[in-house]
Nucleic acid binder design. Sequence first.
RNA 1: AGGCGCGUAGCUCAGCUGGUUAGAGCGCAUCCCUCACACGGAUGAGGUCCGCGGUUCGAGUCCGCGCGCGCCUACCA
Length: 879
Amino acid sequence: MAEIPKKYDHLEVEKKWRHRWEEWGIYRWNPSLSRERTFVVDTPPPTVSGSLHVGHVFSYTHQDLIVRYQRMIGKNIAYPMGWDDNGLPTERRVQNYLGIRCNPHLPYDPDWTPSPGGGKRKEIEEVSRQNFIEACGLVTAEDEQVFEHLWRRLGLSLDWTDTYATIDDHCRRISQLSFLDLVERNLVYQVEAPTMWDIDFRTAVAQAEVEDRPQHGLFYDVRFALEGGGRLLIATTRPELLPACIAVVAHPDDERYQPLFGKYAITPLFGARVPIVASEHADPEKGTGILMVCTFGDAMDVDWWQASGLPLKQVLGRDGRVLPVTFGEAPFQSVDPARAQQAYDEIVGLNAKQAKKKTAQLLAQPGSFPGGNEAALVGEPQPVEQIVKFFEKGDRPLEFVPTRQWFIRVLEHKQELLDQGDKIQWHPAHMKTRYQHWVEGLNQDWCISRQRYFGVPFPVWYPVTDAGEPDFASPIYASPGTLPVDPSSDPAPGYEESQRDQTGGFTAEPDVMDTWATSSLSPQIQSHWKLDPDRHARLFPMDLRPQAHDIIRTWAFYTIVKAWMHEGEVPWYHVVLSGFILDPDRKKMSKSKGNVVTPEDIIDDFSADAVRYWAARARLGTDTAYDPGVFKVGKRLVTKVFNASRFVLMQVDRAVGEGELPGPEHIGEKLDLALINRLRTVIEQASSALATFDYAAALQVVEESFWTFCDHYLELVKLRSYSDEDTPARRSAIAALCWALDAYLRLLAPFLPYVTEEVWSWRFAGDGPRRSVHTSPWPFLEEVEAVPKPKVFGSFDAAVEVLTKIRGTKTTAQKSLRWPVERLTIVGPEEHRDALAPVFEDVLRAGNVEVANVSVSDGAAPEGERFSVTVELADEMES
RNA sequence: AGGCGCGUAGCUCAGCUGGUUAGAGCGCAUCCCUCACACGGAUGAGGUCCGCGGUUCGAGUCCGCGCGCGCCUACCA
């Protein structure tokens, strides 16, 4: 029996158990057990280059609560850890930190090493893609340690022997295998088409990464000339796209414009002759009801252009600046090419914002309206609140730029993907609706190519034609056995490296896959899909996907897509969605808000158990206000567990010393039986709540019961268990205390893994699974069956009621709770007196009442109460 | 603009398939150093359950309509 310390030092205790758990390896997956006995978690790999905040602690704790329960009910747990280091955020960080930039055309230099602090150098060093990836690897390894340290402190029961990083060889291999599999199934294609483009990151982005932001814009009223005379007023927010105007459209039912359909308009400044067309796209209510279609102002322009067959006039480049074009040549015909060119030259090279301003100025000048001295711009621009699409990580609006991109065919499989969603259980259930809305609302295929470097390269090359151009129509794919490959340093199959970028040779696909193309494979990455069929069968489909609800449209959706496309399966049976942490003013918590308290600080102050308690109080899917008060409550519970356990085990120690703990067969006193009987309900309720992932409900039941145990049962049983004589009454008390504490520790273990393990080690730890509370069996009902059911119910509550009355009288009289009672009169109906009788002795002891000073009689009790209780206190303390 | 969720004590939240006087913790007030715990304990004061209608013997709980908040999706000339 271990020495019981007087005070609880959470930092020391946490450190001790953290190391011992690692030593014991109790959180490791056993690969030899069958799938049925295993509980598999698709752990979210956090973006390591992001900053850690309390939101992480929140959702990762939720997973761990579920996992710890599953472990205790005997499941073999597969709970690995992954890091999402692949992608833009890391790239940016590495560039700044090391002062390097990727040049994918450079060859790999095996001797190159990054110099820390390189970010301070003046010139930026260019390195090959593989060197760049290695540098990213070094930086992210540091970031990963920060996360790992926090996860360990939090007590997450992760299997640290089984980790992955989304850029490592294994993940690149799985990602490339996935791509090749999709090629084989004709589920992926490449196309040169206008796609949403971020001009700062200079990459394509996917629909899921786009967000709307309200912007203050200006509506410019611009006059177009009608061919053969007349004019037309068009409202636009993007005058800089005027040179890209290909048509003018109005609603077919709009009587104002019906006579114009089929005729032509002449654009101001640039003199382009554009058709006036009827189109459902136009809203008669908006602006002047007639609008210009440009290539490209928005998604509608793209749709319209594709259907129209009109030529493309691209005026914005990949950097968002106005491209040089020649007027008079197709497609930039003009009724006055010289004048058009003159106007255009004023905006060439400007960014969209500058070009907008300049074009507006030009339009305001007299003579900008074709054939006269009038200005095309009418009146002052009107301020307008508009909604503009942005890349979620971007700072400037997205543009539509024609580029060659790879897409996965999701649009034509919406129904199948909805069906997959139905096969998965969503917790809470209403979150499925979000998934459905997203799938139903998809309007583009999944763009997976990014014009970046720190990502998984496409395992693709192209032949270089005799004309020296890549032949994109004839991609050369890597063979699966050679993966992972980097086409920019590995030659295409059947070619020599010397033929790279040579006529008749090959060239690399320069793009990388979006990070979601890899993280959507987290189940397959963990199961070693296509590499280890046996392991795959033991892990896939998984049981649980924990995640936050904001990434249903990305991570959850993409993972469902991949699992369905590759194997026609769901990736997991259950998804649990954590809510967000909100500021006290109910806004989503963010760094910029100044919530600078780090999770490590909070653990230092309140203990890991207390922080877990805070997370565990929040139900799935429910956003929760950040309330440090809850940490305090958690800390109080931890302290209470420590102190109550200390009391119980000291009593046990006094009674049996080093001897064996008395078994449940000694429990005979009615109060003790009543206690155990109450625990039956607690175990039932907590178990069924946890089985449906409702850890918060389980905690509530257990916590409430534990406080009752401390506040009432311990007080009632205290003096009986103090007894120096080894009577059946004392033995019953000791046995009940042991039984109850043993159960409470296991019930609380998923929530408070440290303090429960600490207490467990004092007296309960045994051999085998019972070495740790976390591998001990979850309390099951058979354990309760070993203790007889009380014959009369309500004894516990009756005892509590009378004791509370006695305490109340003393408190009101401002006397100590030890103060003796002169006279106790209890009046109540038979039913309640019968319930009270067997536990009455305990009540009197706890209330410091002499049996001789008590009278109990038949009669009515006040409404809602069992008894009418009258308490007269003694005059003196000593009586 | 549609969808989803939420609106219960000053604050944070429980209240399952409708059932007698609506719960907890924090905070607050008053008191108590009793041999597990003052990082504690006892007791108590706090609520027209967002509003209005309806169903019902009975509604915080079900239905309808509003109002407010959050999120998702759409709106981008």
